[in-house]
Design a protein around this nucleic acid. Structure first.
Lengths: 338, 338
DNA sequence: TTGTACGCGTTATCAG
DNA sequence: CTGATAACGCGTACAA
């Protein structure tokens, strides 16, 4: 049987109150000798406090939940690591949940986490939301959302990514290289992230006097196959000289298909991705892409959440993270290639 | 204030015992009407049991810890997902810890997890172990180790990967293609995993009457740069026609460097990786590799752990997972290329 | 069929 | 400086 506070108290011939104070470093009003004695018994018995009991009293578990769609999505693996580092540094543990982009599963996790009395939740929500259901759903735990939206009550903060400007910069860059016919291979367009990127794409075109052409936008999924299949299916308009992709996976798929069709990147077609996942710099050619600071996103969001839990004030409950264009090998000037 | 068991009891005009039974489905000896009434009040008050209090009584938290070196290592991201799925399916939550291959951090996590009263721990240990320190370290929680060894007390099960045969099969395959001079670009050789792969490599060579040549083994780290730098530095023996790599990252690095040097894969040199990470099949050429079922590893290990916790018996406390060679584009017959 | 009362391991308040 | 003692929210003998 493992020793409890009470055991230590008995063994030391003092009260549990005294031991508790010593364990928690509130021993300023305790005698030297008592402290000595109790500490040695704690050592000897290898006493470990029971967090459960402590949490029952203090109402604080020093545990937070992290809900993401799927760690295997490279964007979320970095995010998860950032979240864990942030939590760990501040003395919190992280309960790890994969929702598979399923709102139902997400809500079940929120329930479990609530029952386990987490202090807060960092939520990268499923893409498809349902305002009505969510607003009805009782959430008693502070939530900070990451990147994606949610309509739950109890959302105390949001950490967003400036997708609009990220896309804008990428497309502007392409235009600066001389490209005029720029295809946008987007992920699902019914989610905010895609909408924002589309808006950035459009604005960049319009600001440059090129004008928006709806035929140059194709919608698909955020995966390798979409990029690959789109190109292989021959849907590619012959006038297109550059492709802006909804993420790196799509871009990688497109590059691969282009290679198969003996088209050269960037000589024949320039490609730009989004995310800067690990593969992006390993691929040949190395991918030009809009870098998402996903580690930072996780780190910052959990940091924010803990700030809220600990009553640290911020002027804004929303923080927006800027994106950075990383120029590598998959983009080239049009003039040179003509 | 959120409603407690006691509140429900008061509101329903019954005792807490009654409510408790109903909440836990042990209502076989409770009157129909009482059940109805209590349930409706539970609904109305949106009552949620407090897991902490429950766990204090039952001594069970339905929570387990997962300790891995780093989720960002592709091998562990899949493993983590498998572990979480397994836990979730069986009603457990997962506390997520990244040890950065640091034994000290690993032990701190074990302590925290113990204080939080996890029911068990799934541990993919740091590579460098210290038998003396570990054996002295008191662990009160059941542990199942994944792939890597550990000397802690309290290890109740092991899930291993059959690295020896994985390597053996890969090298045999290369030999079957006509290769005789096969370089092994290994990760750190002071860990069991590498030792086993080296042993498999050696055995395959010897079984084929080729004999082992120590000059054809190079030690480095398990990352992209090792493969890349090794090739770029000109260390490659001109007689080598195939390379067996300690993991896919090394292989990808080698492929990239070879391309840069205008060598063709597989025409000039065949390459085989280890792991089958996502990039392996996206890369051009697609990588031939030994597939590690890392998702399964996590899934099985956590399943085993829970079996142990719930008293489900197994004949063996150790399970070994077989590996499978996935042949793709980075390997070719020597005859054809000559 | 239902209720009483105690214990789980802590922390915190308030006397002494 | 130190010690009783009452919570915290729940489960479970045992009693009624």
């Amino acid at each position: 049987m493992t020793a409890t506070l009470k055991d230590i108290a008995r063994l030391a011939g003092v009260s549990t109150a005294t031991v508790s104070k010593i364990v928690n470093g509130k021993d300023h009003d305790i005698g030297e000798k008592t402290i000595e004695k109790v500490k040695s018994i704690i050592q000897e018995q290898d006493y470990r406090p029971n967090s459960l009991a402590r949490s029952m009293k203090t109402k604080v578990t020093k545990t937070i939940g992290l809900i993401i769609p799927d760690v295997r999505n490279p964007f979320f693996t970095d995010l998860a690591r950032g979240a864990e580092d942030s939590a760990n540094e501040r003395g919190y543990s992280l309960l790890f949940c994969n929702s598979d982009d399923d709102l139902k599963k997400e809500m079940e996790y929120i329930n479990t986490l609530t029952e386990k009395q987490v202090d807060g939740i960092a939520l990268a929500g499923s893409v498809k939301r349902n305002r009505e259901i969510e607003e009805k759903f009782q959430v008693r735990v502070p939530i900070v959302t990451l990147d994606r939206d949610a309509y739950f009550k109890g959302i105390k903060g949001r950490v967003l990514i400036d997708n609009f400007n990220g896309a804008y910069d990428a497309v502007k860059y392409l235009i600066g290289l001389g490209h005029r016919r720029i295809l946008f291979l987007s992920g699902r367009l019914d989610i905010r992230v895609s909408e924002e990127r589309l808006a950035g794409y459009r604005k960049a075109l319009e600001d440059s006097g090129i004008g928006f052409d709806g035929d140059l936008v194709a919608e698909g999924n955020f995966n390798f196959n979409f990029g690959y299949d789109y190109i292989m299916s021959g849907s590619l308009d012959g006038t297109v000289t550059a492709i802006f992709c909804g993420n790196d996976l799509i871009a990688l798929g497109a590059v691969k298909a282009l290679k198969k069709l003996k088209k050269k990147v960037p000589e024949d077609i320039s490609i730009i991705g989004f995310d800067d996942i690990y593969l992006a710099s390993i691929n040949t050619p190395e991918l030009t892409t809009v870098r998402q600071p996903s580690y930072d996103l996780g780190y910052i969001a959990v940091g924010r959440l803990i700030d809220i839990l600990e009553g640290i004030e911020h002027k804004q409950n929303m923080v927006e993270i800027k994106l950075e264009l990383v120029v590598r090998e998959s983009t080239g000037s049009l003039d040179v290639t003509v």
